[in-house]
Design a protein around this nucleic acid. Structure first.
Lengths: 355, 355
DNA sequence: TATGAAAATGTGTGCGTGCACATTATTTTT
DNA sequence: AAAAATAATGTGCACGCACACATTTTCATA
């Protein structure tokens, strides 16, 4: 059987295509008996609308804006952009027009400036990565005001209302749990653990915080023994020498540390430092498949990276609008991406990873 | 600002849409001067063909057959089927017609019987999972004879010729390496390893063999120390009592075993048995996210499942034909799916897992 | 210059759908 | 029972394109 068309349904239900159309779009003006027959035909024939014909016929154009942090010097956001690009190519054929904006993660003002002229453009949807919480909230409030549906990616701001139509991103808490499990299994039962936060700013981001919470939660569970956990904040991670001394000193002070959980993507600095001070016995967990991390995987055996396919994040995020406008699926759901555990032996498949 | 149509080009070039069409498709029968004007209009107006209208109009139909093992009582093949279904829905809009066949994995005759009438149908492509090697070869030979392009999924039979257009599946050797790495990191440096093959038949399947080879290869590498490795074949794994005694006996004989590598998806039997004899200290590696394995994950902490997204296998396999016929990409390539490491804490995302 | 073939160009139909509008059936009101 | 109002259903066109076919133009030859 080839494509099932509206015409086929009409024939099977003994009505005209106009009636089928009314049923499909809930336009009313259909008798109960006819509606029933049509619905039956739709399900028995397993009808799927031809989206091309649909979008060709109704000829609507949808303008979607995307706003994410600047991706020029950042592998992670570059990957997100790649996913957005892939979805864009797909959606272009269906009457979508995608306009991309970027903002500087470090300069909250830039996002607010953008907001000033953003709403003078007519958009039908917004894909946004609200990494800056305060400014993000302001932006989303403005969206509600302008009746603009939005999908959040990567960072989640808890929202209700009809315009908050989706979230695609990471489950940071869960990734903390996972990191704890990995360390718990792979190190000595008596070994201690070290959590390292590496960030330029002195504040601890919400993602990092949730990761830490998940990590600690794991050892509160009854069937997992408790562990000795210490924490370390590092902001000047770029100077290898300082880092090395810092780390060496710390490991000497807490002799029984045998696993390290780095809550950001900067774990390659730690792995390199450990290599140079000859402490490759430590198991390290870090995040994200950025280039430096991929490099260090082959040198540092006991390293696991937790990856949340950023390409797919951008891709699914944008595709939400495709579903919303073309498939008429109004899905108000959080969608978490798989927590991929990556080590040297399975890294290759994830790297080019459209998956 | 809106979509540029061939009609717009025609107007600007002072010709009819028929002439534009001929230029676009190099059909000839156009005067040089007209062709020049049309080409100029195309570039100045920055024309991009509307792919929807194109495929809608062009109306070519491609018939693709799929042949995989019976999926009624098998989670793995059910997932493959799901991926095939997803690709089918996508491709339907582009004029593809997909016809599904299944065969009984245990009865080679069924596949041969199918072959008898299969080629009387006119297909443009075949997606096949040649799990039965001998019969698979016969089938593929017949494909060559009938000029039928084919894509293999899951199992690979080495073939050349213009009709072998792709393979999507597992990298068994690599998954063996990965299993070894996981065990190597997570167990005591002096701990021994046990490889368990669980299969009804007495022969060891090619996948299992390659997994074993990869596993052993890991410990031949210079920077990974060598390990004591013993092997066990189990065919009557359904009787829990026998299995338990069997295992208990074996673990007593080889006292230092601290990690187990099960080369099939039946590792849940092992994990259950270990639970009942109180040996949850052992780290177990197994394969596939089938229901029994997912269940046992929450009870058995030291279990890792290696998953090769079967949904995507079916999906990508079929989509090869989309690329072949619509994008005209003739890709003769092996495509390996990511080796997902799955444990209790990250299982959920992979389960529903279109990913 | 008339003729006919070949080259160049134009026209019409259909793909599956959405939507406006036309038509028919049913119910309500007078 | 006829007229009017409303509910139910059917029809036709457009979307942008490909392709078959119809028509016009060109040009060599008689």
């Amino acid at each position: 059987m080839g494509q099932v068309r509206i015409k086929d349904i009409a024939e099977r239900a003994g009505v005209s295509i106009g009636t089928v159309d009314r049923v499909l779009h809930n336009r009313g003006r259909v008798s109960e008996s006819a509606a029933k027959r049509v619905k039956e035909a739709i399900s028995t024939l397993n009808y799927n609308p031809n989206l091309m014909a649909r979008s060709l016929a109704n000829g609507k154009r949808y303008r979607i804006a995307t706003i994410i942090p600047n991706s020029d010097n950042d592998d992670f956001w570059k990957a997100q952009r790649k996913g957005i690009q892939k979805a864009t190519e797909y959606m272009l054929n269906y009457g979508f027009e995608i306009v991309n904006y970027e903002f500087n993660d470090q300069k909250p003002r830039v996002l607010l400036d953008l907001m000033n002229h953003f709403f003078s453009e007519q958009y039908d949807g917004l894909l946004i990565a609200p990494t800056l919480k305060d400014e993000g909230i302001k932006f989303l409030n403005a969206c509600d005001l302008h009746n603009l549906p939005y999908v959040q990616i990567n960072s989640y701001i808890n929202r209700s209302g009809q315009y908050a139509i989706g979230y695609v991103g990471q489950d940071s808490f869960q990734s903390g749990l996972l990191a704890a499990k990995l360390l718990d299994i792979s190190i000595d039962p008596n070994g201690g653990l070290l959590i390292i936060h590496m960030e330029k700013e002195t504040t601890t981001g919400p993602h990092m915080l949730k990761k830490e919470q998940g990590f600690e939660q794991y050892f509160c569970s009854s069937n997992n023994g408790s562990r000795n956990i210490v924490k370390l904040w590092i902001s000047d991670y770029r100077d290898q020498k300082i880092l090395r001394l810092h780390l060496e000193d710390y490991l000497n002070r807490f002799k029984n540390i045998s696993g390290i959980f780095v809550t950001t993507s900067r774990c390659h600095h730690i792995a390199r430092a450990l290599l140079s001070i000859g402490r490759e016995d430590l198991v390290v967990i870090g995040f994200d498949l950025i280039e430096e991390n991929i490099d260090v995987l082959k040198d540092y055996k006991r390293l696991f990276l937790i990856n949340q396919n950023p390409v797919l994040q951008g891709y699914y995020g944008l595709m939400n609008f495709f579903d919303l406008f073309l498939k008429k699926n109004l899905i108000i759901e959080k969608r978490y991406l798989p927590l991929d555990i990556v080590t040297f032996e399975n890294a290759q498949n994830y790297i080019h990873g459209e998956s």
